[in-house]
Simulated assay, not measured.
Amino acid sequence: MEKLFLPVNIGALDLAHRVVISAATDRRRIGESHSAAYCGACVRHVSPGGLVITPPVAVSATAASASVPDGFDTPGTAAIWAAAISLAHARKAKVVARLCHPGYAPFRAATLPGTCIDEVIAGFRRAAERARHLGFDGVELDAADGSLPDQFLQDGVNRRTDRYGGSIQNRLNFLCELVDAVTGVWTAERVGVRLSPFGQFRGMSDSDPVTLFTMLLTTLAGQELPFVHLVRTAADGAPLGHLPYEDRSAAARIRAAFPSAIIVSGDFTRRRAVELVRSRWADAIGVEAGMVEDGADGR
């Protein structure tokens, strides 16, 4: 049997196979509203013993937007989240909440005051607490595709001159502080980070992305996280997206930097997904819920 369909342990998450249901994996749905109800649709596609990563969940009222409208405290959503989790657990599947701050004005990395940074970190902590109370199995910090943490990482947009800007190490500080805040609520073995190396969505860019993301993954490994989730986006305009495995040198450096599980998401054929896991570059493959049903992941 192909490795893609064999069990895997990702921190505290024991999974029966390596196909992950991950909402909006290639950003074809950008512009659409991701509500709590969509999580239920994702869960209905999960196979027994699998993993679902939810649509983005706004970590606070100030993080909510037209495309990420529902935080855990949005009126009427708690029962929807609870029903989705119950359905997944009935299938012996796990559900990880994707905690998101889109970073729209005035919450931009370049201009965000220090007091607001503390407020954002507190928002992630409260969202992590709420996710645990609702019965999720873990959380994923969204630092991909132009989100607020991504804006801190990449020097094409981060022009800060304080401890959050300038050197790569400084630009890692914000995300590392978010990780520390969330792992103070959950154990580290139930926390992951979503990233988009080489992504250009929402104007993201970096002068040396291989070094940046290699250093970041080494740092996250030191924080004992069980997984990172690397995504590619059609919005970049590149046919193959921006995953680094297409560049052998970059792929080797990034894989070596993070010895724990790497989940990769994108519009993969079944053959490509099998190859990525067989080659040990990826440990699991993320697919969008609708793609499972329409067969886009199986050719």
Rank of each mutant, 00 (worst) to 15 (best):
E2T: 13
E2S: 11
E2H: 10
E2R: 15
K3C: 01
K3V: 14
L4G: 02
V8L: 11
N9M: 08
A12E: 10
L13E: 02
L15D: 01
A24N: 12
T25W: 03
R27H: 13
R28M: 14
S33N: 06
A37G: 15
C39E: 10
G40V: 00
C42F: 09
V43E: 03
H45R: 15
G49I: 09
L51E: 04
P56L: 01
V57P: 08
V59M: 03
V59Y: 09
T62V: 14
S65Y: 04
A66M: 11
A66C: 09
D73T: 11
T77L: 05
A78P: 01
A79R: 15
A84H: 07
S86Q: 13
H89A: 01
R91D: 11
A93D: 05
A105S: 12
P106Q: 08
R108N: 07
R108W: 06
A109M: 14
A110T: 09
G114H: 14
C116H: 14
C116R: 08
D118G: 15
V120R: 07
A122G: 07
R125Y: 06
R125Q: 14
R126S: 15
A128Y: 06
R132L: 11
H133M: 09
V139W: 01
L141C: 05
D142S: 12
D142F: 12
A144P: 05
G146I: 02
P149G: 12
R159Y: 09
R160T: 07
T161F: 01
Y164W: 10
G165M: 08
G166E: 10
I168S: 09
N170V: 04
L172A: 07
F174P: 09
C176P: 02
L178P: 11
L178Y: 07
V179F: 07
V193N: 04
R194A: 09
R194S: 14
Q200P: 02
S205Q: 04
D206N: 12
D208N: 15
T211Y: 01
T211V: 07
T211P: 03
L212Q: 08
T214F: 01
L216N: 05
T218D: 03
Q223V: 05
L230D: 04
A234H: 15
D236N: 10
D236Y: 03
A238R: 15
H242M: 11
S249F: 04
A251W: 08
R253K: 06
P259K: 09
I263G: 04
G266R: 01
D267M: 04
F268V: 00
T269W: 00
T269M: 02
T269Q: 05
L276C: 06
R280Y: 12
A282Q: 00
D283A: 01
V287D: 00
E288H: 03
G295H: 02
R299Y: 10
